[in-house]
Nucleic acid binder design. Structure first.
Lengths: 112, 112
DNA sequence: TTCTTACTTGGCTATATTGCCAAATAAGAA
DNA sequence: TTCTTATTTGGCAATATAGCCAAGTAAGAA
């Protein structure tokens, strides 16, 4: 595995890590419906404004969102809507997991 | 945002988090070519066997891989190959990021 | 049984992430 | 200018993650 390849995987991981938090997923999902300002997202997520602002900067640093400033208001926009497709795969993993658990219950194979 | 929704996003985040490490991405990518045992993946990733084993258990707990044991050898398999589509989106984010940086250089807007 | 190979788990330290509060900044309004 | 609203940043404590070594388990060979 050469350095270039490793750098590629590190870069991918950095972006995926930016998606790996429930609050940030809520934000990404919401931005599919259009741009939102920080206060709207703060209201939606239900954390402190500063916390939401930091989540937004994580998304921005990953290149997943971009901003439009209008007066004192900062609007966040989704940069790559293809992220949506990805959610459907994650959902199918979750469904498969649920199904697997159900099978365990039915056949009494549930682990200790 | 009701509890059920929050639980959904938490579950999604849990699975995405399992993907958010370069070594685990290397593993996922490799498994697209077929099942691999722990020693093969250890060789590929280049970390301690115990480290790789822990990465594999993270992927297994997320439902992203499943195992087949044959004697003392444990083969890991990809459970949801749709994960591949996702990589192409991440790659497009990376490309867009690179392009954006290039524009900054050209227009001398690079930040301090 | 003992040895070896393949893998997992425990335990530890180092590092990173999260979330809150408080303080700083920025743009308008008064 | 001062006040207010919108947002970001600094700092800190709590928690989670990563990686290594050492020890444990499991299956087959000798």
């Amino acid at each position: 595995m050469d350095k270039k390849m490793i750098a590629k995987y590190e870069e991918q991981a950095r972006i995926i890590k930016a998606l790996s938090h429930p609050s940030r997923l809520i934000i990404i999902d919401e931005l599919h419906s259009g741009r939102r300002c920080v206060s709207e997202l703060t209201e939606l997520v239900g954390s402190d404004t500063s916390t939401v602002s930091k989540h937004l900067s994580v998304l921005k640093n990953a290149g997943l969102v971009f901003v439009e400033k209008e007066g004192t208001t900062v609007f966040y926009n989704l940069r790559m809507p293809c992220i949506l497709d990805f959610f459907s795969c994650i959902e199918s993993v979750i469904e498969a997991n649920a199904l697997g658990q159900m099978e365990n219950v039915i056949s009494c194979k549930t682990k200790k």
